[in-house]
């Protein structure tokens, strides 16, 4: 009898007992995180997984996990790994799910082939190979979802460091701090434009007090942002241009031409208030609180 069809038959004929053994094994395991996973959920995951493995072995054998027969099993495992990584399981706690199936399958196979030591050895070996491969796959899937969590957190951090502040009814301000590499500038620009749409602001102030170097790349990004802001029907003021930056920009030959520039955010705010028609007296009193 071919190894894979033997295993498929054993699982099919003893599904209930294997499942019960396996769940008992998992519940007893020191790596089960009862705090993070409900028992009912564990039972459901185990049942679905065992059924999927049975179907895959029957259809595609145990050798070729890259084949189409194993697609369902792998997708299920990827989902379980993802859920566990998000829930805070460690990689080994996650892989235990698959690896703890070894013992129940060994017991069943041993009972089945009591009188045929040679065949038993082969069967146990192929089960081991299979579950080890699935275990590795689980860890890979776990790490992948970890990486995407980290990536997402990094993007969030970037967004956090470029907050768009609503200074006044019609006025938003974007205080930039740090190096404007292309990646971040792209995000900054998008955040600002989104905020303009959200708030219906008519004036945006970009404050570059916290940007240490304004070279032609940064200048180009700023000019593009100003142009895009205008296309959205809003006006743009660039503030925080310190004397040394102003001189350097002139030497570079960058023409900020029609862009309104101001030395400080407070100056820019005054200009913005005038343009939106708010009264200065009232503005001054409240600006102190708003900025």
């Amino acid at each position: 009898m071919k190894s894979s069809s033997r295993l498929a038959g054993v699982i099919k004929n003893h599904e209930k007992e294997i499942l019960a053994d396996w769940i008992k094994e998992q519940l007893a395991s020191t790596t089960l995180r009862g705090d993070l996973l409900k028992e009912s959920e564990l039972r459901e995951q185990s049942r679905a997984f065992l059924a999927a493995v049975q179907a895959a072995v029957q259809k595609g054998g145990t050798e070729d996990l890259a084949g189409p027969a194993w697609a369902d099993v792998k997708q299920l495992l990827a989902e379980i790994s993802r859920a566990r990584s998000l829930a805070g399981f460690s990689p080994s706690e996650t892989a235990t799910f698959v690896l703890s199936l070894k013992q129940p399958l060994f017991s069943r196979m041993t009972a089945e082939l009591k009188s045929n030591a040679a065949e038993l050895g082969e069967e146990l070996w192929s089960i081991t190979l299979l579950l080890d491969k699935l275990g590795l796959f689980t860890i890979e899937a776990y790490l992948k979802s970890r990486e995407s969590v980290i990536e997402r957190q990094q993007t969030e951090l970037l967004e956090l460091s470029t907050p768009v502040v609503e200074l006044w009814d019609d006025i938003v301000a974007l205080p930039l701090v740090g190096t404007l590499d292309s990646n971040r500038t792209q995000i900054v620009m998008e955040t600002l434009l989104q905020k303009i749409v959200q708030t219906g602001a008519s004036i945006a102030i970009i404050d570059i007090t916290g940007v240490p170097t304004v070279d032609t790349l940064v200048a180009q990004h700023l000019l593009k942002t100003v142009a895009a802001t205008r296309l959205m029907g809003a006006d743009c003021i660039i503030s925080g241009i310190r004397p040394q930056i102003a001189q350097t920009i002139v030497h570079l030959g960058v023409n900020l031409g029609e862009v309104t520039t101001k030395a400080s955010l407070a100056d820019a705010f005054q200009v913005a208030l005038k343009r939106t028609g708010a009264t200065i007296g009232k503005a001054k009193a409240e600006a102190a609180g708003a900025v």
Partner: peptide, 11 residues
């Protein structure tokens, strides 16, 4: 000013 100039040129 000179710091800023040389850093920007280098950039």
């Amino acid at each position: 000013v000179d710091q800023t100039k040389v850093v920007t040129a280098a950039s």
